[in-house]
């Protein structure tokens, strides 16, 4: 698990909790959506510290485009500031208990199996029977094509790198290399047909985005 932390210097309890949770920590000195360090992470942790207003304002600007779970660390007197800020997945009060942080990290990064109907425009993915349809007509996908499409439809807007897609969709036991992702994206585009192939966009030298 990769956790981006802001500010770059974590407080003691947070640092211990991250270490306890076995997280790979990457510093995010600026809360800007272009930051690859944020985009390549699995979770963003923001400590409000002594600049609560500014950090919440910056966070609220990027929270939608990064599409990551966000955990906020705040002191008791700053808790109310979080009211109405969308996209915060969880929070912790200072002083941070490392064990509590570890548990919250785990809860946030376990992907719950999706069991609802996934829809995008006229595309439907039904996880109960693994069937896909386009404008009501069945769309014949292989297992990996289905899993990749489901993941992308379920996590739209944000850009996924090939490595992230490999680990999220294929799982870590797969060694085929990131070219596999390109090949599968092409196959999906071919099956979606000309009009809809633009649903999946290639972001040069980064990866792919859906929607």
């Amino acid at each position: 698990m990769i956790v981006a932390v802001h500010p770059a210097e974590s407080s003691e309890g947070v640092a211990d909790g991250l270490a306890l949770g076995g997280a790979t920590v990457t510093a995010a000195p600026d809360l800007v959506p272009e930051d690859r360090r944020i985009n390549d992470s699995d979770l963003l942790l923001v400590e409000l510290g002594d600049q609560p207003m500014r950090r919440l304002r910056e966070l609220s600007r990027i929270v939608e485009s990064i599409g990551l779970p966000v955990i906020v660390v705040a002191s008791v007197e700053h808790l109310l500031l979080m009211e109405g800020v969308a996209g915060i997945s969880d929070f912790l009060m200072t002083p941070v208990d490392p064990l509590e942080l570890r548990l919250r990290l785990q809860r946030l990064t376990i992907t719950e199996p999706v069991d609802h109907l996934v829809e995008f425009k006229d595309l439907e993915l039904n996880p109960l029977n693994y069937q896909a349809s386009l404008a009501g007509d069945p769309l014949d996908l292989t297992f990996m094509e289905y899993e990749l499409l489901r993941f992308m439809v379920d996590n739209p807007v944000r850009v996924w790198s090939r490595e992230q897609l490999l680990s999220k969709v294929w799982g870590y036991e797969y060694y085929g290399g990131a070219r596999t992702v390109d090949v599968h994206i092409r196959r999906l585009r071919a099956k979606l047909g000309e009009e809809r192939s633009s649903w999946i966009t290639t972001v040069r030298s980064v990866g792919y985005r859906f929607g």
């Binding site: 092409r186 196959r187 071919a190």
Partner: peptide, 9 residues
């Protein structure tokens, strides 16, 4: 037909 079968041309 080929693209339907996941063979991009």
């Amino acid at each position: 037909a080929l693209e339907h079968m996941g063979i991009p041309i």
